[in-house]
Design a protein around this nucleic acid. Structure first.
Lengths: 213, 213
DNA sequence: ACCTCGTTGTGAACGGCGTTCACATTAGTG
DNA sequence: CACTAATGTGAACGCCGTTCACAACGAGGT
């Protein structure tokens, strides 16, 4: 923790901790390499012993944050009243979406860090992006959709692309409400609209009207 | 155009032109004030005679770009086969969404410029954000939803928030496909999924299942 | 105990950025 | 024609990310 003179105990971890704090407080823009080095009381160049570049540091922070998102989803799923078949599947899918959104509102800085410039699908299955449940956020979505399919609410023909459909709606709403034009919505309207977004996703997925016979 | 010695003919316009070119080529990150000044062959400080800050320059560029988006939507609407009532209304709403998406794919750099850090709803009605039709992109969406309501496909109770619902889905899909994890989708799947997104929005809006009696 | 060697942190420097300010140049106006 | 307001210049400030030669340390072998 405290540095033993010249050497820092665990600089890599300390930088990541400071990074999470900074992003939480003021978003991903505030993540300056020099600033983090200052917080940890180390020369800027020391950072390069643990990360190849600022970008790579940010990537590590993104993975950490994705784990938190996964936990938020898991919490929301745990709160779904037990049910069977289609009702349960709908509940889980909704919980995944609401978990995503509630995390975004509770931790806007971290949310932006995780999803604003989160460019690759690699992280969707990166071990470092897993939460306590052992799943990444993307895997939670996949699982919810599997459940939906098993419950007979989603046809096999409509399954491909279902992740994109659901993610689009929820992610778009998150963007608009966290950072965008709808960011000054009060919590009530926000939650009400979120429920409509989730309902829209459900309808879009269960419509089962493929354009091929 | 060419500068008459000391003075530049129309520096403000020249900077905006250069800014659009730069953003088109390499996204909004590449918009450095000094770089634009270099292109226009002027000292960096000269920029401050026309814009209070880099941020304000970018804002002006955003408005310009929104006008182009409005035009793209208008083009798409013009291509909708003429019909009446609900069919026509559905067609217009779809065209607005598809116009948004096609613009995003055709001009990814400009799209990001316009919608990535586009923080206020003010620009939704800013005169400088209007296209040739005299409407901003947001106003096009409003109009499409009005049409939908007039056609009886959208209840008055569901009208508030309809903009947010539609925008969320389309914007989220645009983000994922332009910059995000789905950016390497081929054009075919992209268009196919876009149609499903639009269909999802339609279903979500026309569901007419308010939670209050 | 000593010496080596790889690891980790330092300090100074480079070029780039946005921004400021005193100053130079010009176009219009009275 | 002189004055003034508008417009462009040049140098400077403090920030940023990154690089590199160098210093301090821990561990392992002799």
């Amino acid at each position: 923790m405290a540095r033993s003179g010249y050497f820092h105990g665990d600089l890599r971890r300390a930088l990541l901790d400071a990074g999470v704090d900074a992003a939480r407080a003021s978003g991903p823009e505030a993540l300056s390499l020099r600033e983090l080095a200052r917080i940890v009381e180390v020369a800027p160049s020391a950072v390069y012993r643990h990360f190849e570049s600022r970008e790579q540091l940010v990537s590590a922070l993104v993975l950490r944050t994705l784990g938190m998102v996964a936990d938020a989803m898991e919490d929301e799923i745990a709160a779904v009243p037990p049910a069977e078949g289609r009702t349960w599947a709908d509940g889980v899918l909704g919980a995944v979406g609401i978990g995503y959104l509630r995390f975004a509102w509770r931790e806007p800085g971290l949310f932006q860090l995780a999803f604003r410039a989160h460019r690759d699908l690699d992280s969707a299955h990166d071990p470092d992006a897993r939460g306590a449940s052992g799943r990444t956020p993307y895997e939670q979505l996949e699982r919810a959709l599997d459940t939906l399919q098993d419950a007979g609410a989603l046809s096999a023909a409509d399954r491909p692309g279902a992740e994109a459909l659901a993610w689009s709606a929820v992610h778009g709403f998150a963007m608009l409400t966290v950072d965008g034009p709808l960011r000054s919505l009060d919590e009530g309207s926000r939650e009400h609209l979120a429920a409509r977004v989730v309902e829209m996703v459900r309808l879009g997925l269960e419509a089962a009207k493929p354009d091929a016979p």
